[in-house]
């Protein structure tokens, strides 16, 4: 319907990260338990637009999705001089915690996908008490690399085209064509070297093998959901990770790939709705 205005509202919040103020763009909708959503490497928070607009979820959750610095509408910080961008485990963790602190969120749920799923595991290891629940989509402690990231940022290869073409195969073929195309559009719009810089965390700095065993799901419940068509973070990667974590919940999602929330929102909803309902139920018991 022409004139329909979607319910989420976008604003900027100033966030102190590493002793420098960052202007972070976020969108939100709903009231209740804070639910912070983390986008994948090289893309931005538009991936969460369907979840943000979900009227049922918005009854129970304050759904928030933010663009990491260098992504979407969150610019690089003022001090950036054009040096190569590299995301580290420490920086990523600090960014999420600083964002939650800036918005004064009380024990939020954090749901991240891909690199967002990996960092959720790190939050569970080191900062579990700060969160009500943690949800990792396409998450594992480690994944075997399947391409050389130097192809992502070089002057003789179109960065947007190659980034999108690489990840296109991670999308399940059953998704609606428009949603699949929109998912790839996010990759075509990324800044030069940003996807590659995010993957520094994924490939080099964020290996959590041997650490996930320390996760205590009594302190913070952990849910891991992975799409069957994700050959980057495979179902086997997630199941192996979960096997080392007592009490972790694992779901393998059919007809979904590496970008469940954007590549096929309806199918994803079938899997995430029970998880969110369980979190709501737990909150009522606690209250």
């Amino acid at each position: 319907m022409s004139g329909y205005v979607e319910p989420m509202i976008g604003r900027y919040v100033h966030v102190d990260i590493g002793a420098e103020m960052h202007r972070i763009y976020f969108e939100e909708n709903g009231t209740g338990i804070p639910l912070v959503c983390l986008h994948t490497a090289g893309s931005d928070a538009r991936q969460w637009r369907h979840l943000l607009a979900d009227a049922e979820f918005a009854k129970h959750f304050r759904i928030i999705a933010f663009d990491m610095p260098w992504h979407g509408k969150s610019n690089p910080p003022a001090s950036w001089n054009g040096d190569e961008y590299q995301l580290t485990t420490a920086r990523y963790t600090e960014t999420i915690r600083a964002f939650c602190k800036a918005l004064k969120l009380d024990k939020p749920v954090v749901m991240g996908c891909s690199i967002g799923g990996r960092i959720v595991l790190n939050l569970a290891i080191d900062h579990a008490a700060e969160f009500r629940a943690l949800i990792g989509l396409e998450a594992a402690d480690f994944q075997a690399p399947w391409y050389d990231t130097t192809w992502l940022n070089r002057p003789d290869v179109h960065g947007g085209e190659v980034c999108a073409a690489l990840v296109s195969g991670l999308i399940a073929p059953q998704g609606p064509q428009a949603a699949r195309t929109e998912t790839l559009w996010g990759y075509k719009q990324g800044g030069p070297g940003v996807f590659k810089g995010d993957l520094y965390f994924y490939r080099v700095d964020g290996d959590l093998r041997g650490r996930v065993e320390n996760i205590d799901t009594d302190v913070c419940p952990l849910f891991l959901l992975t799409g069957e068509y994700d050959f980057s973070c495979t179902p086997e990667d997630t199941k192996r990770t979960a096997a080392a974590i007592r009490g972790a919940h694992v779901t393998i999602m059919e007809q979904l790939g590496h970008f469940p929330m954007s590549e096929n929102p309806e199918q994803f909803r079938r899997y995430i709705a029970p998880v969110l309902a369980q979190i709501v139920a737990s909150a009522k018991v606690t209250a």
């Binding site: 075997a144 399947w146 391409y147 690489l166 296109s168 195969g169 991670l170 399940a172 073929p173 059953q174 069957e228 068509y229 050959f231 495979t234």
Partner: peptide
């Protein structure tokens, strides 16, 4: 028509 997971992409085939 609906390739199985892991058989659906050129780079999935190289990875496996």
């Amino acid at each position: 028509p609906a390739p199985r997971p892991g058989w659906h992409d050129l780079l999935a085939l190289t990875k496996r």
